[in-house]
């Protein structure tokens, strides 16, 4: 519990510093520095020599046709790709200057610092709404009931779900609708106050209304978090991201401010994809 508190205070200090920077319109701080990353699953290479700096306190969208490696890339950022036994990689990824793949770094700790929201909502079916939100804190060893309740409410409010569920906190998480479940998963991810939130096509299984809510949420979360979102939906990338990276066949083709990618891409392939000529 003490650890979590300390953690919290350092984050808010960072946040304040970053706000000061953006206010002064300096170039944004870098969250992820990915350097020459290549990834293989077994014999098959899925990411080729990718170098990219992902800015903090902003939303970065990763777009590209199916099979272009965007999910793999996202999973490398919190070492989730390592769950596939045959996966291996070369190159380095740094988070705020710290090497995520250094030998002394525990992947579990990396994943605690970098939350993730998945394509399909996946609340734990045996847990209530409340338990689903605080399960991450419990894993961190937080036992204080009042503190857990406080954090639960905060996370649910952040996920814009509090008003809809505040009277049903003890109902099973899977009794919610699809869109609510996905927001519950977002609440679960933000409850541990990670530094980064990764989203892997978070709206692909949602209807337009639920999608709009999640997008609104992304916009709100951006104030506190660095968000990296993989999406198939180019309008979505255009609507809610500050930066966009375009991947094609495992290579990063272009990375720039979203307005630039969508209005004046420098690569022919990007333009073809954006305008719907392939993909």
């Amino acid at each position: 519990m003490k650890n979590v508190m300390e953690h919290e205070s350092t984050i808010s200090a960072d946040t304040a510093a970053l706000h000061a920077m953006t206010d002064a319109e300096q170039s944004p701080a870098i969250a992820f520095e990915v350097n020459d990353l290549s990834v293989w699953y077994g014999q098959k290479q899925t990411i080729f020599n990718t170098t990219i700096d992902i800015p903090a306190q902003s939303v970065t969208a990763i777009i590209g046709p199916s099979g272009c490696g965007k999910s793999t890339f996202l999973r490398c950022l919190n070492r989730m790709h390592e769950l596939v036994p045959t996966a291996r990689h070369e190159g380095s990824i740094r988070l705020f200057g710290e090497d995520l793949y250094a030998p002394k770094i525990d992947p579990c700790v990396v994943r605690r610092r970098i939350g993730m929201v998945f394509q399909k909502s996946n609340p734990f079916p045996t847990m209530s709404i409340a338990e689903n939100v605080i399960v991450g804190l419990r894993l961190n060893g937080v036992r204080d009931r009042a503190y857990l309740d406080e954090r639960m409410e905060k996370a649910l409010r952040m996920a814009a779900l509090w008003d809809e569920v505040k009277n049903d906190l003890n109902r099973p998480g899977i009794s919610l609708s699809g869109g609510q479940q996905q927001r519950l998963c977002i609440a679960r991810a933000v409850a541990v106050e990670p530094e980064i939130i990764l989203m892997d096509e978070p709206c692909s299984a949602l209807d337009p209304i639920a999608t709009a809510k999640v997008e609104e949420l992304i916009y709100e979360l951006k104030k506190q978090y660095t968000i990296v979102i993989v999406t198939h939906n180019m309008q979505q990338a255009g609507r809610c991201s500050d930066y966009t990276a375009f991947f094609y066949l495992g290579r990063l083709i272009e990375f720039a401010k979203t307005e630039k990618i969508f209005t004046n891409p420098s690569q022919k392939q990007t333009e073809d994809y954006i305008t719907g000529r392939f993909g």
Partner: peptide, 26 residues
């Protein structure tokens, strides 16, 4: 479903924690 395991791994659970909260309870 692997999604359940990933949900737990994504929160930084260790293997035993994943087995406990995501696999066995499911």
């Amino acid at each position: 479903p692997d999604l359940q395991r990933e949900a737990a791994y994504g929160l930084g659970a260790t293997r035993w924690e994943v087995t406990r909260i995501a696999v066995l309870s499911y």
